[in-house]
Computed example of a mutant assay.
Amino acid sequence: MAMHASKLRGREQVAHGTMAFHLDKPAGFQFKPGQAIDVVLLESPAGDAQNARHTFSIVSAPFENQLAIATRMRDSAFKRTLGALPVGARIAIEGPSGSLTLHNDRARPAVFIAGGIGITPFMSIVRQAAHDRLHQQLVLLYSNRRPEDAAYLAELQELERHNADFRLIATMTLMSSSSQPWTGSQGLIDAALVKRATDALIKPIYYLAGPPGMVEAMRQTLNDARIDDDDIRSEEFYGY
């Protein structure tokens, strides 16, 4: 994979404890929605070169003129250093990498199942689909503890309003600790919710992204529903 020079252009909070970072898009840099990059800090945090690199799914879509990543701000040497970088700081990016990209058969729907920060690769796919006016059925099941924790929720709701081929089903698992109202689904993404969301779809392909436990549980749920592994694609998010 090629290494490219970039700079930090801005940051914003996109959910409780979750920050998005906007980066210069190097000239000629190309990627597919759903792919990832390695962000390499030019000064190793804590003097440890192994802590200077982290892989992130690209949140921005290829049509956008900047790159964006988003991450939960855990207390790690890398994330402390990234969070403290001044705007304009030089970094390097390597990539793109990853194969969690939308299949080419437009007649087959895509069902995205995301837990928490696992939403990031799907944001790029859904944004690009809206931009391209892609006529392919896309369904997103998105699980968080509370609305406060759901990165890009408002944008996804807006994308659903403007794209007849995109359906969002967001569900919250811990509304008892939320200070915001929520009238949508509550509870885990289980077999019943998947069935309701996909009953009308013909031969969908499933995409899973989130913490390893969530991805493993969802794969088992789909297998129990007789979904073949050939129709399931996944990416596990470690250390987020």
Rank of each mutant, 00 (worst) to 15 (best):
M1L: 09
A2C: 00
M3L: 14
M3Y: 12
H4D: 00
L8K: 03
G10D: 07
R11A: 13
Q13M: 08
A15M: 00
A15C: 11
G17K: 06
G17D: 10
A20K: 04
L23Q: 07
L23R: 05
L23S: 11
K25H: 10
A27L: 13
A27W: 01
G28V: 04
F29P: 08
K32C: 04
P33V: 01
P33F: 02
Q35D: 06
D38C: 01
V40S: 01
E43W: 00
S44W: 10
D48N: 15
N51V: 00
R53L: 01
H54I: 14
S57A: 14
S60T: 11
P62E: 07
Q66E: 15
R72F: 02
D75H: 04
S76A: 07
T81E: 15
T81C: 10
G83N: 13
A84Y: 03
L85N: 05
I91M: 10
I93F: 07
I93A: 07
E94C: 12
G95T: 08
P96V: 11
G98D: 08
S99Q: 12
S99E: 11
N104L: 14
D105L: 12
D105C: 09
R108L: 12
P109I: 07
A110M: 06
F112N: 11
A114Y: 06
A114K: 02
G115C: 10
G115P: 12
G116W: 03
S124R: 00
I125C: 06
H131C: 08
D132T: 01
D132P: 02
L134R: 09
L134T: 08
L141N: 11
L141R: 04
Y142V: 13
P147T: 04
A150W: 07
A151T: 01
Y152Q: 07
L153N: 07
A154F: 02
E155V: 03
L156P: 06
L156R: 09
E160S: 13
H162Y: 14
H162T: 15
F166Y: 09
T171M: 00
M172C: 14
S176V: 10
S178Y: 04
Q180H: 05
Q180N: 03
T183H: 15
G187E: 09
G187V: 01
I189C: 06
A191T: 10
A192P: 10
L193R: 14
V194W: 11
T198R: 00
D199H: 15
L201G: 05
I202Q: 14
I205A: 08
I205G: 12
Y207K: 04
Y207G: 11
Y207C: 09
L208D: 07
A209N: 11
P211H: 04
P211Q: 13
P212R: 09
E216A: 15
A217H: 03
R219L: 08
Q220S: 12
L222C: 13
A225T: 02
R226G: 07
I227S: 12
D228L: 11
D230Y: 05
I232Q: 15
S234N: 09
E236F: 05
Y238S: 14
G239S: 11
